[in-house]
Design a protein around this nucleic acid. Structure first.
Length: 470
RNA sequence: UCCCUCGUAGCUCAAUGGUAGAGCGGGCGGCUGUUAACCGCCAGGUUACUGGUUCAAGUCCAGUCGGGGGAGCCA
């Protein structure tokens, strides 16, 4: 008797015929033939497909237990692998014994039924939605992509840097932050002038959850040359859209002795590596997404990995948009050099004009962050966004300003507190070097790969405004 | 935060201001190996909540709560 996962069973297929095996998992459906046979579809999450377990009426618990099995029951099935008489699977398990490990209380209200549920409903039962076809597939796809990311960087000599979740910088500059505090909210200590006395807080200062690992990872880039972060990050923005989470995962590489062009090439190589791995390693799940969620998703990835990204200057992007307007294209918001592109503008460039991912580079300095490197023209910075059809901005990055005098000028221009950046500025004082990096939103990447349309369904437990049930 | 929209059985959805229904799921029975099996019967409802208009409200009006979509912000 050998223990097998369902994936093992199908991998072995007909070579396993005749072997005695044990499967452990959950009942997806049960179908009866009163002639004396029940069919159990058993899943254990190891692959998309369920195994068919055939239980004869001669089983000692056939009437007492087998015929009472409903969706969601957990079972251990022992039996012989046989070639399937039916269609739909190469092999099945002819059970000699099925032990019921866990029953489903009140089967008529078990939330997960063998039918199509809306994603909105499944979010309300997030502790059980992992048992569905869709979310099982998402779980495996998410893992596959995460491992591909680590493999890509490791093979190229990058070190994974575990940047902190809690930060003492309130200068990370990407939106509202979640406060971290152990102060008693009912009895807040005050300074003589009435302000909150954070010197009595846990860290002796004001602290928050990080909104980006970038500033910290730059310090390690200035020593290990090629580094990246991959972890959760937190934004307390009141964003209610299908593309925003309060807690999401981001990949942020940082490379030394590198330009904006190197940065864009790294992003392109990474994305292609990830999607190639996905197509190779999860064909079962991708077939499901193509069948039931988005019939274009496999073709889109195949196109993605074989086509080069379009590279376009921000200024040229504006020219294309203005030309489109002149030809009758309607936008809700006006297009002009110096303003940030609206979603509709980004969509036009990547979906209508190019039809492929677009790397948009060299943005006006006034709409970008202080740390981005000033170009020689004095009006643009070495920033890039990668826009993907259907998703919008998937990558945002830049070459960093490595010249201390230029960095200080930008900090002053933006009226930021120079002293708060003392250690970040030190990197420019001690052996500074041109360097660049970007941030890749992990959940948005999963949407692009699978054809799913809401990031709340691309993460096991979504955190959004007014929602943190699980 | 703003705009739009939705809330009816465990789930997916019907119901012109006039007796709340179907499919799936569940229970029971039938069916000689099924593939989200099939056939029959049965059970299952504070129509999100509060108030209002009306002879009469699931339906119209106001408010509240919740879900979703779009915008902004961003990844």
């Amino acid at each position: 008797m050998i223990d097998l996962s369902v994936a093992d069973l199908f991998r072995a297929s007909t070579t396993a015929v005749g072997k005695a095996v044990r499967l452990k998992g959950w009942v997806r459906t049960r179908r009866d033939s009163k002639a004396g046979i029940s069919f159990i579809q058993l899943t254990d999450g190891s692959c998309f497909d369920a195994a068919q377990v055939v239980v004869p009426s001669t089983a000692t618990n056939y009437a007492s237990e087998i015929q009472r099995l409903t969706a969601g029951c957990s079972v251990i099935a022992e039996g012989e692998v046989v070639a399937s008489q039916g269609k739909g699977q190469s092999v099945e398990v002819q059970a000699s014994r099925v032990e019921v490990v866990g029953w489903v209380d009140d089967p008529d209200s078990y939330p997960i039924q063998p039918k199509a549920h809306s994603f909105e409903y499944l979010r309300e039962v997030a502790h059980l939605r992992s048992r569905t076809n869709t979310f099982g597939a998402i779980g495996r796809v998410r893992h596959c992509l995460a491992m591909a990311i680590h493999r890509f960087f490791s093979e190229r000599g990058f070190c994974w840097i575990h940047t902190p979740i809690i930060t003492g910088s309130d200068c990370e500059g990407a939106g509202h932050m979640f406060r971290v505090s152990t102060l008693d909210l009912l009895n807040i200590p005050r300074t003589p002038d009435g302000k909150v006395d954070f010197s009595q807080d846990f860290f002796g200062r004001e602290t928050h959850l990080t909104v980006s690992g970038q500033l910290n990872v730059e310090t390690w880039c200035a020593a290990l040359s090629k580094v990246y972060t991959f972890g959760p990050t937190f934004r307390a923005e009141n964003s209610n859209t299908s593309r925003h989470l309060a807690e999401f995962w981001m990949i942020e590489p940082e490379i030394a002795f590198a330009s904006l062009a190197d940065d864009a090439q790294l992003a392109e190589d990474l994305l292609k590596f990830m999607f190639t791995a996905l197509l190779n390693e999860r064909p079962d799940d991708m077939k499901f997404f193509a069948d039931r969620i988005d019939k274009e998703c496999i073709a889109r990835l195949e196109r993605f990995v074989s086509a080069s990204f379009e590279r376009m200057d921000y200024s040229d992007g504006i020219k294309h948009l203005e030309a489109a307007v002149a030809k009758g294209q309607k936008f809700e918001y006006p297009v002009s050099w110096g303003t940030d592109l609206q979603s509709e503008h980004e969509r036009y460039l990547t979906e209508t004009l190019v039809g492929r991912p677009v790397v948009l580079m060299n943005y006006p300095k006034d709409i970008k962050a202080f740390y981005m490197r000033m170009n020689d023209d004095g009006r643009t910075v070495a920033a890039m966004d990668i826009l993907a059809p259907g998703i919008g901005e998937i990558v945002g990055g830049s070459q960093r300003e490595e010249r201390l005098d230029m960095l200080d000028r930008r900090i002053d221009e933006m009226k930021l507190d120079k002293s708060a950046y003392w250690w970040y500025r030190d990197l420019r004082r001690y052996g500074t070097v041109p360097h660049a990096g970007f941030g890749l939103g992990f959940e948005r990447t999963i949407l692009y790969a699978t054809g799913m349309t809401n990031v709340r369904d691309a993460i096991p437990f979504a955190r959004t405004p007014k929602s943190c049930e699980f």
